[in-house]
Design a protein around this nucleic acid. Structure first.
Lengths: 252, 252
DNA sequence: GTCAACCCTTTGTCCTGACATATTGACGTC
DNA sequence: GACGTCAATATGTCAGGACAAAGGGTTGAC
């Protein structure tokens, strides 16, 4: 734990070379903090890569990798021949491979989940197609109603191949589906989402406390694990007055 | 014995070192092509980085950079100690810093645009806030109706600071707004989007050929140039039966 | 005064080399 | 046969150096 304090244009960075956290990540984290706290103002230029690397006792590739993390997040912009600037401080976390449950927990809300139905069903055509199965094969079907406070927020319908996890033994009202899958060793690495809208059906409307035909925000998503296997397909409908998707795009 | 068959660059990649296109990008492009064409099947492992680099006469960092491009696109997945696999072939291009016009053009559709109104207006509070202006300052206001074929697809309302571009001299029915901004030297590098849904207002409904209260897919977006300046704020409403947002998420 | 040519700064690309760490399969012991 | 250990394999991280290319400012010619 050899701490390393460096004096920079504004912020001081500390590096711990004995930590398992990669150096470039340590730098990126502290840079992000300095930007979010306003220590480095939007529009301001940061020192050039070579000087930064030298000041921190790092190589230039490592310094570049750290900066790249924030460029990918949309917080910094590089301009060849000019330098690297802060774009803007407040960045909404882009849509990630997290669940609504995670989102709300992070926001300090108290989400509650009601399991409407769970069991094995025969895969219909679209489900089978998304999960790379044959029509009629068994899949878990899980229907849940999500509340935030006392308000119903979303109707969620997930399909999961039976050989991925076992849903019988779990209390899904307490544990998020994704948390359960993670703890079962399922790592979701890539997901495809499709966001749209439609009018509420009679049953949905009833569940969400809306009228039939009321506008709903929909999201269908297929998640793949690190072997490329489809491990989850979900179709969800949200009350648009309570939920929206935010994302930050970066042109590279 | 090595019971598994490792896939080589069976397609011999061609590299042009005199080209201005970076080597890592040349490799990434050809790899992508091989994956999309099915030459390398989903789930298949590709050769390890060192062997690939050697075969192509590249250094390992360059090879890694090439692979990283496809990992970022969600086409490949790396597993330490194991190798790199193809996830799945058909990847929808993730939401990018392009416009609907670009999207439809790329899809071979023939989009048509009707300019409903264009002119300078005093910025209201939300517009001023998004564009980093003061309330009451002049901004361009541009309302358009987008058709695909004969069907109205979207109502688009854009706001642009007056010192960014001049909209008077342009035929916005023929030229996309973004294309015009690009040709004016405005480079959009970062954008924040918020996707939601709501019922159609009376005017919108009329324009889109829907009934009042019909579900619409909405997207609000603020774009920033490479100096961090807000250059565009737009509020758009889409007919959900004709349009949806697709994106691919990658966990890194 | 205008504009082109030049130089300096900074990021972009690419190379070689090294060690760390996660994963898997094979081997050996009990 | 079950289980722990070890080695092989492949990616992850990091160092240090070199040249290319783009942008911006300065200088000089006209």
């Amino acid at each position: 734990m050899n701490g390393y304090i460096v004096r920079m244009p504004g912020p001081r960075f500390t590096l711990d070379r004995s930590s398992p956290v990669p150096l470039y990540f340590q730098v990126a984290e502290q840079f992000e903090q300095a930007i979010l706290s306003g220590e480095i103002a939007p529009g301001e230029r940061i020192d050039n890569e070579i000087a930064l690397a030298k000041d921190l006792g790092l190589s230039r590739p490592t310094m570049r990798q750290a900066i790249q993390v924030l460029v990918d997040k949309g917080m910094l912009v590089r301009k060849r021949g000019v330098g690297t600037q802060v774009v803007h401080g407040k960045i909404r976390r882009s849509v990630e491979l997290t669940s609504l449950f995670d989102d709300l927990s992070a926001a300090g809300q108290k989400p509650r989940t009601e399991v409407l139905a769970v069991g094995k069903v025969a895969a219909e055509e679209d489900v089978a197609h998304e999960l790379q199965l044959k029509v009629g094969e068994d899949v878990w079907s899980l229907e849940r109603l999500r509340y935030v406070g006392k308000q119903p927020l979303a109707v969620m319908h997930n399909f999961i191949p039976v050989d991925v996890v076992d849903l019988d033994a779990v209390d899904l009202a307490k544990t998020g589906l994704y948390a359960h899958m993670r703890s079962s060793g399922i790592l979701m690495r890539v997901a495809r989402q499709r966001i749209g809208a439609r009018g509420a059906g009679a049953e949905e409307a009833e569940l969400l406390g809306e009228k039939k035909g009321a506008p709903l925000l929909t999201m269908a998503r297929t998640a793949y694990d690190n072997a490329g296997r489809a491990v989850e397909y979900g179709r969800h409908a949200y009350r648009p007055d309570l939920y929206a998707f935010e994302l930050t795009l970066v042109d590279r």
